[in-house]
Every structure is written in C-alpha cells, then in structure tokens.
C-alpha cells in the first residue's frame, strides 16, 4: 500500500502538472479537491485518464470520481480493490 501511495503521488504531480510540489508535500489523507490540493473538475477528468492508463481501471461516470479521488489513500484502496 505504501509503495502504491508513493507511486500515485509521483504520477499525480506529473499528470496534473503540480509545479513546485514534491511527493512528500502531499499528505495521503489530505483532500485532493477544494481545501486541500485545490484540484477541480478538470483534474478529476485527468485522474480518470490516469486510472485507466496506469491501472486499467475504467470509471464511466465522472460523479463516481468524487468518492474515489477524495484523497490519495482512497484512490490507493480503490485501485487495490479493483485491479485485476
């Protein structure tokens, strides 16, 4: 799980072009949207692409993203549960 969290941090920084951010700056429990990292609906779509490209997980309804992408931790556990 820790390895996955670390990998996700790197991938998110890359995919979302989070300038000036290092993996250790992101708290895996911290909310990704709103208050926390300040991501928005476009970032959610970018993360949907990341999930499919890197982990083979398809998210059909963008609304499901709200729960899955709450934090790095929720993303990691969703990946663990759904990866074939």
């Amino acid at each position: 799980m820790d390895d996955l969290i670390q990998k996700l941090k790197v991938q998110i920084i890359e995919q979302l072009n989070l300038e000036d951010m290092e993996p250790e700056d992101i708290n895996p429990k911290e909310p990704l949207f709103g208050e926390g990292l300040g991501l928005d609906s476009i970032d959610a779509l970018e993360l949907i692409v990341l999930m499919e490209k890197e982990y083979g997980i398809k998210i059909q309804n963008p609304k499901d993203g709200q729960k899955i992408f709450r934090s790095i931790e929720t993303m990691a556990s969703y990946i663990q549960m759904n990866q074939k």
Binding site: Q15, I42, E46, V49
Partner: peptide, 9 residues
C-alpha cells in the same frame, strides 16, 4: 484512444 482533457480545453 484514451485522451486527457487539458490540452483540448
């Protein structure tokens, strides 16, 4: 195929 939205918007 699988495309990201940022460059489009």
């Amino acid at each position: 195929g699988l495309l990201a939205p940022t460059s489009f918007i």
